[in-house]
């Protein structure tokens, strides 16, 4: 069966994910070392140890994302996160930075290393380098590849691949996008937050809801339309004669019906985005995907996805897996 890797922003979400059938849960520490450094989220070292005990007692794994890029001079914060993860008994760490990968390989050789989507390793040469130089055992592929491209990559590498199947979309080559830095001075790559809530303001203006980020209006939506979060790449912009969602519509990914093709392409694990979401979201999405991977493994038809309401824009896309770019 394909492994289902599920998000947890809090210990309660971790328990909800495990109880809903997650094979593995990924989470992070409450600081800049992980790419979901949101207010009120994440784990202390003690929370992590407790979460690992809970998951292991029920046969689930815990993977810890330490997937931002350390600032020069501040490396001890990232090194401590690795030490805390190993002490908590986690099953793997998910890393993006070359220096941190080298440090982990040298000082924590027994700790399994996965390559974060933030490293944007999207071709066999890059992946094989990470595997041979740093002993990376699994690569989370960026959300810019088609299913055929994923199959072609898998034919030329020896490590496992993991792909996103549900949740918010980061549509650029991850770890390389500076849109959020331009508007707010903070980025997912360095601070663990894209379009951070500290810079977000909503205002009801007449019949519209205006969503602003760092003072820039990113969306203006009618009272009856779904409300989007002002993530920069999903904003409505004017470029030349055209006004619209230049980069990506405010939709989120749902690749449920591509699971058999992803399995055929040699993908080992399916990842659900949403560490910033509630335990209600985690439980519902995990339960639905567990049923889907079980159906796929048994050769049964996949259940219809009922998850649209949880999606941003309340609309879903299959993203780049089956897409032609604008």
């Amino acid at each position: 069966m394909m492994e289902l890797v599920c998000p947890a922003g809090t210990p309660a979400a971790l328990r909800a994910a495990v109880e809903a059938g997650a094979h593995a849960v990924y989470c992070g520490f409450a600081d800049e070392t992980n790419a979901r450094n949101f207010p009120g989220l994440n784990f202390t070292p003690e929370d992590m140890a407790e979460g690992v005990r809970f998951a292991h007692a029920r046969g689930a794994k815990v993977l810890v994302a330490i997937n931002t890029f350390p600032r020069a001079g501040a490396e001890p914060l990232w090194h401590r996160a690795l030490a805390h993860a190993e002490a908590a008994g986690v099953d793997a760490v998910i890393l993006a930075d070359l220096g941190l990968l080298a440090h982990a390989a040298e000082h924590h050789p027994g700790l399994r290393r996965h390559l974060s989507v933030q490293a944007a390793a999207a071709n066999p040469d890059a992946i094989n380098l990470y595997a041979s130089a740093f002993g990376v055992r699994r690569v989370v592929l960026p959300r810019v590849l088609t299913v055929e491209e994923i199959a072609a990559i898998n034919r030329e590498i020896d490590v496992e691949t993991e792909v996103f199947v549900f949740g918010g979309l980061c549509v650029m080559a991850e770890g390389r996008c500076s849109l959020s830095s331009y508007a707010t001075g903070k980025s997912p790559n360095m601070n663990g937050v894209c379009s951070p809530a500290s810079h977000v303001a909503y205002a009801e203006e007449g019949n519209d809801l205006a969503a602003r980020l760092g003072g820039f209006t990113i969306h203006r939506t009618a009272r009856t339309a779904p409300a989007p979060y002002p993530t920069l790449c999903k904003g409505c912009f004017t470029s030349g004669p055209q006004t619209g969602h230049i980069f990506e519509d405010p939709v989120s990914l749902d690749a449920t019906h591509l699971i058999p093709r992803l399995a055929g392409a040699g993908v080992r694990a399916l990842k659900i985005e949403g560490r910033q979401r509630s335990r209600a979201y985690v439980a519902q999405v995990v339960r639905a995907f567990r049923a889907a991977v079980e159906a796929q493994a048994a050769g049964r038809p996949l259940p219809e996805s009922q998850l649209a309401r949880l999606a941003e824009g309340q609309k879903a896309t299959t993203g780049a897996y089956a897409k032609t770019w604008r």
Partner: peptide, 26 residues
């Protein structure tokens, strides 16, 4: 219910310090 889903569907509306609201919700 999921807080973000309630917000996307306009069942909930937020004004003011968005980061504080997220911290409270989480």
């Amino acid at each position: 219910e999921d807080g973000d889903a309630l917000f996307f569907s306009r069942d909930l509306a937020v004004e003011g310090d968005t980061a504080a609201v997220l911290a409270l919700r989480n």
